Simulated assay, not measured.
Amino acid sequence: MNHGVYYELQAGELLRLPRLERTLRVMQGRVWITAAEQLEDRVLDAGQDWPAAEAREVVIEALCASRVLILSPQAASSDTRMRMAQSWMHNAHAWWQRLRNQRPATA
């Protein structure tokens, strides 16, 4: 399965993208992201995502040695389904624990 395109950046290195339509995920390190026509810059750490949503003139600066991944459409869709399933399982487990704790004690 193709997860997307990886970029490895050294501290201080810049990556310029004329257009970004897919989610960007920081796999390692820390990056500063700025995009034209967006009011705020953002800093992302490893494990964080930025859903670019058709951002233009994106500049990514590595604040330390970093690796970023621009997710393929298939990987982004699969990732969303996985997070939804994990959320459902977490809620089901919490519900089951509450149900078990409400049983009357047996003598």
Results as ranks from 00 to 15, higher is better:
Leu71Arg: 09
Arg67Val: 12
Arg30Met: 14
Ala65Trp: 10
Leu15Asp: 11
Ser77Pro: 00
Met1Phe: 07
Ser87His: 11
Arg19Cys: 02
Arg83Cys: 00
Ala62Glu: 15
Arg98Ala: 11
Thr80Val: 05
Val5Ile: 15
Ala36Cys: 10
Pro73Asn: 11
Gly29Tyr: 15
Gly4Ile: 01
Leu20Thr: 05
Trp32Asp: 13
Val43Gly: 09
Ala92Gln: 04
Leu69Tyr: 13
Cys64Ala: 14
Asn2Arg: 06
Ser77Val: 02
Glu57Val: 00
Thr23Glu: 01
Trp95Ser: 05
Val26Trp: 04
Met1Pro: 08
Ala35Pro: 13
Leu69Cys: 10
Trp50Asn: 11
Met27Asn: 09
Arg67Asn: 08
Ala65Lys: 14
Pro51Cys: 00
Glu40Cys: 04
Arg81Met: 09
Arg81Glu: 15
Val31Asp: 14
Glu54Phe: 03
Gly12Ser: 05
Leu39Gln: 14
Arg100Glu: 05
Val26Gln: 02
Ile60Tyr: 04
Leu63Tyr: 08
Thr106Ala: 03
Ala92Leu: 01
Leu99Arg: 13
Ile60Thr: 06
Glu57Phe: 04
Gln28Cys: 06
Trp88Asn: 01
Glu40Leu: 04
Glu40Ile: 03
Val59His: 14
Ile60Cys: 00
Val26Cys: 03
Thr34Gly: 10
Gly29His: 15
Arg56Val: 02
Ala36Met: 13
Gln28Pro: 07
Asn2Ser: 00
Leu24Asp: 05
Gln86Val: 07
Ser66Met: 05
Trp95Val: 00
Trp96Gln: 02
Leu17Asn: 09
Gln74Lys: 08
Gln97Ile: 04
Asp49Phe: 10
Ala76Trp: 04
Val43Arg: 13
Ala53Tyr: 06
Gly12Arg: 07
Trp95Gly: 02
Ala107Gln: 04
Leu14Ser: 14
Ile70Lys: 02
Pro104Lys: 13
Arg98Val: 02
Leu99Pro: 01
Ser72Ile: 01
Thr23Asp: 01
His93Phe: 09
Gly4Ser: 03
Ile60Arg: 00
Gly29Gln: 14
Val31Phe: 14
Ala85Pro: 02
Arg81Cys: 05
Arg83Thr: 01
Gly29Leu: 15
Asp41Leu: 07
Thr80His: 08
Ile70Thr: 08
Val31Tyr: 14
Met27Thr: 11
Glu61Leu: 10
Cys64Asn: 13
Asn91Ser: 04
Pro51Leu: 04
Ala92Val: 02
Ser72Glu: 03
Gln10Met: 12
Ser87Trp: 05
Gln10Lys: 15
Val68Asp: 10
Arg19Trp: 08
Glu13Pro: 10
Pro104Gly: 07
Thr34Arg: 12
Gly4Phe: 00
Asp49Lys: 08
Ala11Tyr: 02
Arg83His: 06
Glu61Lys: 13
Glu37Asp: 13
Ser72Asn: 02
Gly12Gln: 06
Trp50Thr: 13
Leu15Ile: 11
Ser78Val: 09
Cys64Pro: 09
Trp95Ala: 04
Val58Thr: 10
His93Arg: 14
His90Gly: 06
Arg16Gly: 10
Val26Pro: 03
Met82Pro: 02
Ala52Asp: 01
Arg16Trp: 12
Glu8Tyr: 11
Val68Asn: 07
Asp49Gly: 01
Val59Ala: 15
